[in-house]
Write a protein that binds this DNA or RNA. Structure first.
Lengths: 163, 163
DNA sequence: GTTTAGTTGACTAATTTGTTCGGGTATACA
DNA sequence: TGTATACCCGAACAAATTAGTCAACTAAAC
């Protein structure tokens, strides 16, 4: 289980699809514009998401992507695994160059940690993230009750974001 | 909080130091040989670990690295943060190019997930990993009671390792 | 003073990330 | 039947990151 910006893009895009999918399929062009992710990159990501059965596509005009399952049935772990392909398998997967025990120590160790992180992210559903996001939007609307001039909202990134 | 092989190398090396640190400092050369990590790469990683106050160094003959605190006081999160520098801060940290709300949506979202993962990994101590590793070694020793020919132990990587 | 081992920095190859381009194909709609 | 929409696919690419190498230096033990 890797955790890179690639997976974040995928999750972000999936949240966007989940939030805008009420009235039919969501186009990647719309996601691209809203989330500022290059269209082609989205195409690559959604190709994987589709092949993983996480989203389904509708071609032609009025087409786009929609969730293949309910948002409550889709976990962050599934999304990340779909786009952040495994590769590696920790350097000796099926290879025979794994002779000394030490090597295996690393593997077992990380397999364990992987399991922990994976099961944690498996417990976080898209539905939860969407709900969290919608609440945040409501809070923001209430807080900035006065009509703020467009394009001036400061971006408050919690300190921990840099972690 | 990124989660890459770099962090894994660091944690693996730290476990090695923790397990072999009973009789004085552990040299990177020894870690390099046992864990099959390039010496120079370890030097880079331990440079960061030292500057983060996670390990302390002893120079000269008989020198090496030892934990700066008890293994029970060192979390996986600390190690990973030390070597996997933050960079990014999710693309707009202090920058002013964060105008539309959507951008901030991503940030808040990931800050939240970061917090979750971070606090989870903060709860995993080096001492726990060492204990887990020692138990595994004991199990392996009991299981492979017969004297296995050197260099033939198969490397069993759990399926989930590929995740 | 010689050896050990940390310390630093520069430099490199390989991989990953994110993007751009250039073409396809399926479908709704006129 | 045509045309616009939007999914699909692959190649090529710059930038960043990862992992490793090399070389020179400093502190300490013996």
């Amino acid at each position: 289980m890797r955790l890179t910006t690639k997976g974040r893009f995928a999750v972000t895009a999936m949240i966007d699809v989940a939030m805008h999918g009420a009235n039919g399929p969501v186009t990647l062009a719309a996601v691209s514009e809203r989330q500022r992710i290059s269209l082609s990159y989205l195409e690559q990501l959604f190709g994987k998401l589709r092949r993983s059965g996480i989203v389904a596509s509708v071609r032609g005009p009025g087409g786009g992507y929609h969730l293949a399952r309910a948002a409550a049935q889709l976990s962050v772990a599934q999304i990340i695994v779909a786009v952040d392909e495994p590769i590696d398998a920790t350097q000796c997967g099926g290879l025979e160059n794994c002779h000394d025990d030490r090597r295996c120590m690393t593997h077992d160790l990380w397999a364990g940690l992987n399991n922990h992180i994976f099961s944690f992210l498996s417990g976080v559903t898209l539905a939860q993230l969407v709900a969290q996001q919608e609440q945040a939007a409501i809070r923001a609307a209430l807080h900035d009750a006065r009509p703020a001039p467009a394009g001036t909202t400061p971006c408050k990134v919690p300190v921990t974001a840099a972690v």
